[in-house]
Design a protein around this nucleic acid. Structure first.
Lengths: 363, 363
DNA sequence: TATATCTGCTTAAACGTTTAAGCAATAAAA
DNA sequence: TTTTATTGCTTAAACGTTTAAGCAGATATA
């Protein structure tokens, strides 16, 4: 009898609260506390399975929480705990398969530990990148995972992140000078693989449409290209080594420039797939046979490299692995309370995906 | 003299604080208040240019804030104000040009008003979509802009958003039943445009590889296709109308299925570019001339439609306009304190981009 | 029996803002 | 001169959590 009365009593209180809620605010821990006549602190502990709360109370709390459709206020707990459980991600753009795949893997890995990500795009602009950093810091992210814009030379803004004591992890486009964690592929070796592959196909004059020298990864690709040429005793001509923004447009322009040479190359290694596509368009338009007349290799293994005619040989950058490692590196930092900067440089081996644009023997 | 002493005094206090900060925490409004011997409330108001604070104080506050490298704590103000200034975005995936462009435009538009976005991907999975919604609600977003996964039929989770009183705006893949704001293109008319175009090219047996009928936009494309055929008194055969997941893989499968017909179609209208690409691959592999033997039209105007051979005719969905309108619609809601659901259905006219895959006359 | 330990809570402060209310001092109006 | 308004602040509470500290009562230990 007593139990029944008690249940009826609780039900009354509950329905009273439900009514109120329809008119008013969201359910808080306080509402649950009121319904059960216990303190908000007890409710908080019950929801977190604190050992000092009885099983009976825990069950009751969870039941009421469900009935009242309670949703914890993340802002409040984040404020109190000093952790937002938000991680900022900065990429040059999301509509490249590489970056979107990295992002997806970061998200999946962080999700396991209850972290969410805020994605921002720099559109290859340094100015936008700075604004993104401000935005992320403003949002109180617990860490930042970034790949730099093409334009970025000044590292002041990144120093700002470091000075705040927030973990910073760079991937793909990074900078050694910053002395932070980095995850990327071995660009130098990738260039070697490409040159080696082209040499095997019988190419003798290999040109390189490279990225901006000031970006480390592109610089490494250029160095790899030069050293590989030396290794195979091939001619290293200034005219065959061109710096580019690596857009499709610029790929077209630089290809046109190469075709204007008296002594044309018999192979082109382009440091980015989009630019490689531009180059291919020009070659196709001018009726130059690929790969017989000129072989072509791109970089990044974007899906379209397998869609165009001929399909383009490219380098697979292991985007998913890069994303996972970046997330894991962040989590390592997040777990330590001390912000001891134990540097984590992870360099993955890339993979050459051979396709029609460089397959001379079978052509 | 008095002024000078005062300056020296302030400087001392300042440096004392700076020292502390190096060892300890981030600067707060309280620190600034202590330096200037005013109340935290005055500092807050000064930073917000409250008219009841003297210009002198404002300047001093801003100067000290700068010196101490003050960064407002967004969590605290969000908690206090009950607004996170965060907007959640749910898309099936980001590595499609359409979605990434929509996202970029949402971001730009919201940024103007001080809102940030949290991007989540459903990967076309209903389960993931539900988790995304929970995540976003947990993060206390002020609104959600979403495009539904292919799988999504059950709308319960979306009702959850509505019941929280959080503005929900759908784009592209939406549902009329939910009765929320929607921004998209006129799918029905787009189908008409495509059929009309193909008829003009002389096609007489037009097949349609469509999306899932339960998704409204795909259903509209199917209805448009059927009605347009009727209008032009063309045969409407069951075998020529196929439902597909619209992946590249499935595009290949469905194309193969169509080619197995005794009476082959002379044109294929595919409701998605990726599937159209799969179809094109099969056609190319089988040596079927496109567009002479069979014409092909896709949907979405993904960049690769202009890259492949032959280039694929497609429908431009005005991604940037959709993104902008979605953001603006959210902002309208955000500005009203009352959550009066004045519905905003925006249907944009799409645009047919004619390319080689359907250009029979010039071929 | 007295003391220590454990259990299951409560109290109260804290996280960093914002803001309603209030209060002096000064300026303007009567 | 008194009243009213304006200026420039302060006080204190609030947002919804978490958590250190504490406190009864029950149970175990000496």
């Amino acid at each position: 009898m007593i139990i029944k009365t008690n249940a009826v009593y609780l039900l009354k209180r509950l329905s009273k609260y439900i009514k109120k809620l329809n008119i008013k605010k969201k359910t808080t821990i306080k509402d649950i506390a009121n319904v059960l006549n216990i303190s908000p602190a007890a409710v908080s502990k019950a929801l977190h399975n604190d050992s000092r709360i009885s099983e009976k109370t825990k069950k009751a709390v969870k039941q009421v929480a469900k009935n009242l459709n309670y949703q914890p206020n993340h802002l409040a707990s984040a404020l109190r705990k000093g952790k937002s459980h938000l991680v900022g991600v900065i990429v040059p753009r999301t509509n490249s398969n590489f970056f979107s795949s990295v992002i997806q893997n970061i998200e999946e890995e962080l999700d396991k530990e209850g972290y969410n990500i805020i994605i921002t795009q720099s559109n290859e602009s340094y100015k936008k990148e700075c604004r993104n950093i401000d935005t992320l810091l403003f949002t109180q992210v617990d860490g930042i995972i970034a790949s730099m814009a093409n334009e970025t030379i000044n590292l002041e803004y990144y120093e700002k992140i470091k000075s705040k004591g927030i973990p910073l992890i760079l991937f793909d486009r990074g900078e050694n000078d910053l002395n932070v964690d980095y995850i990327g592929i071995n660009d130098y070796d990738s260039s070697h693989m490409i040159v080696e592959h082209l040499v095997k196909q019988g190419c003798k004059r290999i040109a390189h449409i490279g990225g901006y020298k000031h970006t480390r990864i592109f610089n490494n690709r250029i160095r790899g290209y030069i050293d590989a040429l030396k290794k195979h005793q091939l001619p290293l001509e200034d005219a065959l080594l061109i710096e580019s923004s690596l857009t499709t447009e610029d790929g077209r322009a630089k290809m046109t420039q190469l075709l204007a040479l008296k002594n044309r190359p018999d192979a082109i290694y382009v440091a980015g797939d989009y630019a490689a596509l531009g180059a291919l368009q020009v070659l196709n338009e001018q009726g130059i046979k690929v790969p017989e007349d000129i072989a072509l290799v791109g970089f990044g293994n974007e899906p379209f490299t397998g869609m165009v005619t001929p399909t383009i040989t490219s380098i697979n950058q292991h985007s998913s692995e890069i994303g996972k490692q970046a997330a894991k590196t962040f989590l390592q930092h997040a777990k330590k309370t001390i912000v001891k900067q134990q540097l984590n440089k992870i360099i993955l081996d890339a993979e050459l995906i051979t396709r029609d644009s460089s397959n001379i023997k079978n052509a």
